[in-house]
């Protein structure tokens, strides 16, 4: 009974949100938050930026995954682990050097090295195996690395401080404040995406990669050193995942198993985008990031339009958790090979 009453109250106040000027917080810290009619616009803008940022991090992870899958026909479940390793290397090298950017460079280098070691020790022996064997072995690798990281760093989450110059927030427009670091992540994501695009479309190695994604045996038959190409692709994938992990560190906490959730999202992204397609991964990553973020923020409000509040409160979050899966199922229903299927497949 009490609960219902409270929810009703919450309901009413939501309807009036915007014109309420709360007592005791009249911008005492100078936080220029909006009060007024444009609150919903600002909310939407902020959420869109957040969605972009999540999407770009997902893209960094998914890009490597989709290339490795598309060109090498190799399902690498351990890709999430490489993201996690990037974050832990960041913890390590930031701690050692005391400098964010030096730490970042070293962490990415270490992530590449770790990726190449894994390639030589484990993955190389799996290329000619069935997908299921690859899944099984790389899952074993997930168990091993997660637990290994736990033994070394403990299971308590670790934080990476935001670098000095990227602390605080930026006023994007009147009433819209956005954390600087998140903007930096968005910027870095876009830069990497452009670089990757140039690499894939305008260089010789990129041409081989694209050809490999379409027909790997043919590329090999044409005399390209396929082993070398695989190493390069793998290195790029490890670098991007490690970079994503290191950049995500100051936003998310660093803990064992942090790659598992991201891995599933990355698979959703590459499947929606079409396997082997960088462009598909980019668009799908943004799509997933936006749908997930916007869904979480507006699903409950949406259901309140036609359900009673307590029902909306339980249906909303459940549906918003499902949204990306619904999205994926819908995309695959209409386009069974994703939005941008690689040519020749």
């Amino acid at each position: 009974m009490l609960l219902l009453l409270q929810i009703k109250r919450a309901e009413q106040s939501i309807a009036h949100r915007g014109d309420a000027q709360p007592p005791g917080c009249s911008g005492s810290d100078g936080a220029p938050y909006a009060t007024g009619a444009n609150v919903n616009t600002i909310l939407l803008t902020v959420q869109t930026l957040n969605g972009l940022q999540l999407g770009l991090i997902l893209f960094l992870i998914a890009a490597g995954l989709t290339l490795v899958f598309g060109v090498m026909d190799f399902i690498n479940l351990a890709h999430g682990v490489q993201y996690m390793l990037g974050a832990y290397f960041m913890v390590l090298f930031y701690g050692l050097t005391g400098h964010f950017f030096a730490g970042l460079v070293l962490a990415v280098l270490a992530a590449i090295l770790a990726g190449l070691i894994l390639e030589i020790v484990v993955f190389r022996h799996l290329y000619d195996r069935s997908h299921l064997d690859q899944v099984l072995a790389t899952f074993g690798l997930i168990l091993f690395v997660n637990e290994g990281v736990r033994m070394i760093w403990g299971s308590v989450p670790i934080s990476i401080p935001t670098p000095e110059i990227l602390q605080g927030a930026v006023v994007l427009m009147p009433g819209l404040l956005y954390p600087t670091y998140r903007l930096a992540v968005i910027g870095a994501g876009i830069v990497v995406a452009i670089l990757l695009y140039i690499l894939v479309t305008h260089t010789r190695i990129g041409m081989q990669v694209r050809a490999g994604a379409a027909n790997a045996p043919m590329v090999s038959a044409l005399g390209v050193n396929i082993r070398g190409l695989f190493m390069v692709i793998f290195g790029i994938g490890a670098m991007l995942a490690g970079f994503a992990g290191a950049m995500a560190g100051p936003i998310f906490s660093v803990e064992p198993g942090m790659g598992d959730h991201v891995l599933i999202l990355a698979f959703v992204v590459i499947v929606i985008g079409g396997i082997g397609s960088i462009r598909g991964a980019f668009i799908a990553a943004l799509l997933v990031g936006l749908v997930d973020t916007l869904g979480r923020s507006f699903a409950t409000d949406f259901f309140r339009l036609f359900l009673d509040p307590s029902a909306a409160n339980s249906v909303g979050p459940a549906v918003s958790s499902m949204l990306i899966y619904i999205l994926m199922a819908a995309v695959l229903f209409f386009r069974p090979a994703g939005l941008f299927p690689a040519p020749g497949k």
Partner: peptide, 15 residues
């Protein structure tokens, strides 16, 4: 920390 053993066992089983 059994997963440290179990993981490699899976890999070995596959290989």
């Amino acid at each position: 920390h059994w997963r440290v053993i179990f993981g490699p066992l899976l890999i070995i089983a596959v290989l």
